[in-house]
Amino acid sequence: MTAAMLKLENRAVLRLSGSETKTFLQGLVTNDVMKVTADAALYAGLLTPQGKFLFDMMIVADGDDLLLDIEAERKPDLMRRLMMYKLRADVTIADETDLSVWVSFAKPSCGGVAYQDPRHEGLGWRLITSKTPDDTTLSAAKYEAKRLTLGVPDGGRDMEVEKYFWLETDAERLNGVSFTKGCFVGQELTARMKHRTTLKKKLVAVKAEGGSLTPGQTLLTPDGKNAGEIRTTDGTHAIAYFRLEFGDTSLNADGVPVHLA
């Protein structure tokens, strides 16, 4: 039985090859690239030196190469950033325009590089391939509803570039950071937030009751205090950038009751 699949039009693929590919990425991104295999993808971020979000990606092995599953809209910016860091390292960065990213809630049986979503098992499988799968009936609305219900951010749609600290994106829960791998860009600030401070804001899943949410709405407490902002939403479920001090407070968005999911 074939798996119903959905093409993620907002994703693109880069291929990194060369003898120093893993060590090159290891010194840049937030997760332990040495653990990447053909069967185990990693979720990671590339941050500013101040520990703030620049790019996120999924990294999976394809033979000796690494494939980066990234935001299509910001692909040129990421390529420029990687080239800036590459210097003389034996790494080739190629834009794989013939490859697409697909998702499914069941393991794909068609050819390509398939891997479980490393952020949350509930998001199923991803497939990088140049071919169109036999069954393309998975609806975008169904997949988006699952993502929002699980509280999984979708790149720059939910994470403001150079504004949110990596741990504010809920990256630790989503398996997007290693605190034992050693240095990476923004590592010092990320480790300090983990061990020495308490997070005040974070991306969380919220749900509306009896009304509809829209991106950009402000979450308010009963006395009118700003408790956060709605990011992506399907109307009922949403990702919100939330002030954690209001976790036990009644919330609303333009009068619509909202609670943490």
Rank of each mutant, 00 (worst) to 15 (best):
D170L: 11
D90S: 11
D69M: 03
T21D: 01
W102S: 04
Y85R: 09
L99M: 07
R11V: 06
L251R: 00
G51S: 09
A145P: 03
L138R: 06
V113C: 03
T249P: 00
E162V: 15
E9W: 02
G176A: 13
L138M: 07
L219A: 08
R119F: 00
E168M: 06
A145R: 11
R15G: 00
N175C: 10
L244I: 10
A4Q: 12
L25W: 00
Q50A: 15
S130A: 14
T197K: 11
Y143L: 06
R81W: 12
R126A: 08
E162L: 13
T233V: 11
F24R: 09
Q116M: 04
V103D: 04
V185K: 05
D90N: 14
D32Q: 04
A3V: 02
V13M: 04
R88S: 11
T37E: 03
A40Y: 01
E160S: 14
V113T: 12
F246Q: 09
V177M: 00
L150E: 04
S139L: 13
D77S: 15
L54Y: 10
E9Q: 09
M34G: 12
D135T: 10
E73R: 13
F179M: 08
L14T: 02
M57V: 10
Y85K: 11
G151M: 01
A41T: 00
A89C: 12
L244F: 02
T136P: 03
S130Q: 14
V204F: 12
T2K: 14
E20D: 14
L68N: 01
D154Q: 12
D254S: 11
A72V: 02
T136F: 10
V60G: 04
D254P: 04
E168Y: 07
H259M: 11
D90R: 15
E229I: 15
E121L: 07
A141T: 10
K107W: 08
E96T: 02
A238S: 10
G122H: 08
H195E: 11
L25G: 04
L260S: 08
R119C: 00
Y164Q: 14
S139T: 11
F53G: 05
L25Y: 00
M1L: 15
P215F: 09
G211R: 01
E245P: 12
L244T: 04
D39C: 00
P222L: 05
K75V: 06
G51D: 04
V113E: 05
D170G: 12
P133M: 04
E96R: 13
K131P: 08
F246C: 03
K75Y: 14
A40T: 14
T149F: 15
S109E: 11
L14V: 10
A4Y: 01
K75G: 06
N175H: 05
V177K: 02
A141W: 10
R192T: 07
K207H: 12
L46A: 08
F53I: 12
L251E: 02
D254W: 03
D154I: 13
F184P: 09
A38E: 14
P108R: 06
L219I: 00
P49N: 13
S139H: 12
P76N: 14
R126H: 04
D69W: 03
T180F: 02
H120N: 12
P153C: 08
T149D: 12
M34A: 14
D234G: 03
Q26A: 00
G216R: 08
P133A: 06
R147I: 07
D64G: 10
N31E: 07
